[in-house]
Write a protein that binds this DNA or RNA. Sequence first.
DNA 1: GCTCCTTGTCGAACGGCGTTCGTTATAACG
DNA 2: CGTTATAACGAACGCCGTTCGACAAGGAGC
Lengths: 235, 235
Amino acid sequence: MTVPPPPWRRSPSPRRRAEKPLLSRDLVVKTALEMLAAEGFEAVSMRRIAQRLETGPASLYAHVANKEELDELMLDAVLGDVPVPEPDPENWAEQVKEQVRQQVRAMVAYPGIAKVAWNTPVPVTPHSLRQGEAMLAILRAGGLDLKQAVFAGDALSLYAKAYAYEASSWTFGDYDEAEVAERGRQMAGYMRSLPAGAFPNLLQSGQFFTGETSKDRFEFALAMFVGGLQSLVRA
Amino acid sequence: MTVPPPPWRRSPSPRRRAEKPLLSRDLVVKTALEMLAAEGFEAVSMRRIAQRLETGPASLYAHVANKEELDELMLDAVLGDVPVPEPDPENWAEQVKEQVRQQVRAMVAYPGIAKVAWNTPVPVTPHSLRQGEAMLAILRAGGLDLKQAVFAGDALSLYAKAYAYEASSWTFGDYDEAEVAERGRQMAGYMRSLPAGAFPNLLQSGQFFTGETSKDRFEFALAMFVGGLQSLVRA
DNA sequence: GCTCCTTGTCGAACGGCGTTCGTTATAACG
DNA sequence: CGTTATAACGAACGCCGTTCGACAAGGAGC
């Protein structure tokens, strides 16, 4: 129990600068990323970041405009880990898939970061732009015109975000195994309670919907979409 | 300025039941949906629903387990508006697309409701299941085996969620025009500040990325994916 | 050397959120 | 008529992002 400072002498605690690393934009982002990797997106709040840096929440605002900006900085840092290839016209379809895979991989390492991408209308951070340009370059090397490439790139980045988010949720504790199992039981029970044959396909499909098939589902969707692109190029 | 009641006589306000409609699960959901349609998802909080029903937040918990359950009830109600077709093997590809379009249409009418679908691990509500089964039925009529149908259905529902969410954000005030324009300027400025030719494709692609092209982008992605499915069936 | 001003720090508070606790008023039942 | 079950709900708890204003330290100008 610390005694409150006497009112006639304000600020009795001289800042111990030396003991504490100086606050900076990079330090804030770095700390946030550590928490993100360890505890997931929901656990990263301005207050908890400040706590970890042994300061008050207000201090962060000297280095970061607000939470939204910090979110974007985190996302940008994560995307910085994703390399971009030299476009190869002979191999563009595989390059497209690999690029999306890498984006997903990077985002899954920071569970929930994909959520940020959903709330960002127009991504403007350097690494976002780098990824966007790289994807467009690959697609154009494959023979798509600009408009087609832009539309395809948009859909692909959407894929990446969506699957990264889903995969994060499965691998991380966003919803736990017990709850999912309970829901599975609820669903089966409900379907069986109805007139036989009301849900003939769904009843059999539970096996394909686990967290383990997540990767297969991802690859399937990617293959279908890129297959469609290939048909488009041939036409 | 109302005077607080004297402490020796508690609860001075007799409940005027007659004036107020009785609270019920349906009433809570209905009220929440009205607010959702009018003000968007973020504006729907337990406290504001209660306020609108002229009661306190605690009263809602007699009819709804928590916010999450209420969210799912809202989503289910929205999906209830989406009809399901009789599968037609001759026309399955178009049926698939139309089903996704309808789902998106329904969700866009309640801005932000798509967000709920992302946070629901296994959808178990009746209308969710009905939609899932309908999609599987169409796909199987088209000639896909069960596993393929499940994977495709998963990807398609993901599409629906994603585009519904994006479209909500554009048409609704989630991010306003001024901010988007500012970001566009930032992006252009940044790209031009770099060595010429660093972003050759992105520089020209701004015109395709507005809210107006949202529908075109959606149709393109859908066409590509379903095109891929058709190739798969033919093989 | 002294003042002034900028800049980073940060405690306290504001208004929001979802949820829980414990009390009260009403209706139904014995 | 008394008792009990239940819905209603005020108040509070502990979160959240953000703002305000006071304060310390360092450098600039005189």
